[in-house]
């Protein structure tokens, strides 16, 4: 039964990848990466139990914690870019 979950998650990873490749906006791609991150956590959990290695849950925990840093970095990046563009146009005037 674990296999069903693994296959469903893998299929969803494929679909998220389609969204990441299609875009169209940058936000769609960030959304796809975010989805991919959660799906990775889930698939790592299920694989850890599928192969009888519950010790390796640390890895899923690392992902659950660290993915957030990446998403916040993207947010800060958008913000600095938005701040910079008005000042750039001002300096031209």
């Amino acid at each position: 039964m674990y296999y069903v979950v693994v296959i469903a998650t893998f299929a969803t990873m494929g679909l998220a990848l389609v969204r990441a490749l299609l875009g169209p906006s940058v936000y769609d791609r960030v959304l796809a990466v975010n989805m991919f991150g959660t799906k990775t956590v889930l698939v790592l959990i299920v694989i850890a139990f599928l192969y009888g290695r519950p010790d390796f849950l640390d890895l899923a925990m690392a992902y659950a914690l660290i993915n957030f840093v990446g998403v916040l970095a993207v947010l800060v990046f958008f913000r600095t870019r938005a701040q910079r563009e008005p000042t750039a146009t001002k300096s031209k005037d």
Partner: peptide
Amino acid sequence: VMLGGIFSLLMAT
């Protein structure tokens, strides 16, 4: 960069 993130997640799996 975003696709690089996905690459890394896949690699880890």
